[in-house]
Design a binder for these strands. Sequence first.
DNA 1: ATCAAGTATTCTGTATGCAGCATAATTACA
DNA 2: TGTAATTATGCTGCATACAGAATACTTGAT
Lengths: 228, 228
Amino acid sequence: MSNDVGTMDGSAEGIPRIMRRTLHDEVLERLRDMIIEGRLTPGQRINEGVVGAQLGVSRTPLREAIKTLASEGLVEIQPAKGAIVRRFSAFDMKNILEVLKTLEELGGRMACALAPDETIAEIRGLHDAMMRYYASRNRLEYFKLNQAIHSAIVAASGNEVLVEMHGTLQARIKRLRFIGNEGEVKWADAVAEHEQMIEALERRDADQLATVIRIHMESTRLRVHDVL
Amino acid sequence: MSNDVGTMDGSAEGIPRIMRRTLHDEVLERLRDMIIEGRLTPGQRINEGVVGAQLGVSRTPLREAIKTLASEGLVEIQPAKGAIVRRFSAFDMKNILEVLKTLEELGGRMACALAPDETIAEIRGLHDAMMRYYASRNRLEYFKLNQAIHSAIVAASGNEVLVEMHGTLQARIKRLRFIGNEGEVKWADAVAEHEQMIEALERRDADQLATVIRIHMESTRLRVHDVL
DNA sequence: ATCAAGTATTCTGTATGCAGCATAATTACA
DNA sequence: TGTAATTATGCTGCATACAGAATACTTGAT
């Protein structure tokens, strides 16, 4: 009565059933990637004909995906003119990071309070893997794990809504964050902060973790600031 | 360079230019209202043909609007089956209010710190108007102003991103909140809490405001809980 | 009478077509 | 030669058409 999804479908424990994927879902992911990878640059117009042809899809599912992207704040729709990839100002960045900071702080505190040891161990695993990529200066893989760790901490809170909100905001600044981490010194700083985060989490020291996250987000803002 | 919107358009100070409205925008609002007003109940399937006919619109803009609603979390899309109005469990409510609490707390603190006196006065105006509706037991208008006050406080933070996130979450529980406020006692409690909020805001007592908001959100959770 | 299989119908997902707006191109004129 | 007006092109917004899936219905057998 509460939710009939998942009651009578044949999916056993943990085994995800074959997800029927629609075109607009597929397109949505591709577009997100294109924006994050910089193949669609801020301010650039998304020509439905062109992009549709590139992806081998008609305009209909493409338009639906664009609507979703607009709702996520990654693109801006100007009626009768088209959709353009959203450009974020320094002010926007500040606002986003302010909220992101608050959300991660909440996530971190909750994770300290009620995440199972196993989950924390997994996050430590991600961190160690990330450090190996740092040692070999593999920026792309480092970056991916970096994002994954932040997401994992928030996910460890057990609050799906928090995860969702955090995810959309993180997506907005993903690209800038990637660019912003260039430079050896900045990178080293970020790594040091991450080290502290993991340690606080393992000690389940919520206040300490929150503090480190605050610092980390603030320095992220500075790292990203000159990239605009 | 930051944002070219608003630089060369012919809109004078404060005078909003004629907004071209697209059908899917219009439909989007209407659907939101239908959900909040309970004309579309949780679990109910949205038949594109039927609803499209009701609104006098073809399926295309309707589908686009539904995609946006799904992104906002008000609707769930099951491929090849259709969209259903999302049903929130008590656990969902808890999660939503947890995040909402955090966001409003942040908004409140920022508002105390940097909202102009004038803005705070306007919020006081909303509050007083709300109290008049309470005195005359006009539940609908009371409710609208209640929501408006929460939004206004967050808006007074000056953080657009915060406003946006708050808005989407608020939309999810709008209906439940409306139903939950039935009963004289609960209502009186909510009013008392609001009174304290306004006073704290006027004193720019950020800590106090945050505390009251925490309490208010917690009692909101209780008020809403039995409605499921 | 109950259940299974097969058929029919309804609805979603996607493609295409058309009208209207926005912008680019072209021409006329100073 | 520069600018204004006009035409032309391109693209978006919306509607419709079609194919495939899901559900409802019917029929037959046990």
